[in-house]
Design a protein around this nucleic acid. Structure first.
Lengths: 167, 167
DNA sequence: TTGAACTTTCAAAAATAAATGAAACTTATT
DNA sequence: AATAAGTTTCATTTATTTTTGAAAGTTCAA
């Protein structure tokens, strides 16, 4: 396969994977590009390579930095900013897990807790509701704890995680 | 909190959570509704409760059945079909993991493998590309294996999983 | 302090995804 | 075999998300 074909295929695939997992396509594509770039890239480079507008590039670079998975870099004697990606994949997983927990799961947990503890009454419907939402709360909490624990250890995190959960 | 308010809040929240994780809002809402319904619901019931069209209800019920997380049920003497959800949450997690692996991760892995093994040449760019995409392939494969292993054990899957991975 | 190089913002446009609803289809009943 | 009850399909509409691009904002160098 031609290098350029392989590169393009990779960027497209990473973009598609991202968009299925709640990260927008361009964001994932920029990340893909930075993952395989041997040198930091400028915003121009990225716009050029992905054929996207300046605004789009700017917004998604910002978002990636907010997630903590790419970094700004300054080159001596250069006015422009350059970007590199986090290349340690375990670190990447940790950061994504943290962000998603914070942004999505935590707020949902809050509501689940609220609704699972606030319905009184003795009707079968109400009882069943409380029972089910409580189970869901426990379940989501368990899942979230796992995500969080991942972030506490970088190496061999899985084994340690289990010790912690099972004890 | 009023029962109806709590119910509504729960359905909305589950819907939002779903849509952030790649499952469409209505699909997640229907699932939420079935999770808390003490009795199987008909399509009418669901349309009514969520204020959605017949077509929408039909398509999403179908999708949920394809995922294997809700079931059709027939009541004696009733022409209509009724639906219930999988209420075992571990089973739910297993099914979701299986589906997402099959639909999203497996195809991406195929491409990653392809691009990581097909670029020849000796340029720094090409070498770096091959190196990085190989790492990504291994990483995604590892993640996917974990998802898959989940499906092999229902009870205490985490502990067993670790034994298997660490051995 | 002016202006050139570069970045960010955000209202509007474009692209994408989801929902509607009426017609077609299926299945059971008389 | 005709009808009624119920379900699915899919072209069109609607809602949501993403992208654009031009104006506003920064920062640095002279």
């Amino acid at each position: 396969m031609e290098f350029s074909e392989a590169k393009n295929k990779f960027v497209q695939t990473w973009g598609a994977l991202g968009s299925q997992w709640g990260i927008n396509k361009t964001m994932a594509q920029i990340h893909a590009l930075l993952m395989i770039a041997p040198e930091p890239l400028s915003m121009e480079d990225i716009m050029e390579e992905l054929q996207i507008s300046r605004g789009n590039a700017s917004m998604n670079l910002r978002a990636l930095m907010d997630w903590g998975i790419i970094y700004k870099e300054y080159k001596p004697g250069e006015r422009r900013e350059f970007f590199t990606s986090e290349k340690d994949l375990d670190e990447l997983a940790v950061k994504i897990a943290q962000e998603r927990s914070k942004r999505e799961i935590k707020p949902a947990l809050k509501v689940l807790k609220e609704v699972s503890t606030s319905v009184g009454g003795t009707s079968a419907e109400a009882k069943h509701f409380t029972e089910q939402t409580t189970k869901l709360y426990d379940f989501v909490l368990k899942a979230d704890n796992m995500l969080e624990k991942v972030t506490e250890f970088k190496d061999n995190w899985l084994a340690r995680l289990v010790v912690k959960i099972m004890k």
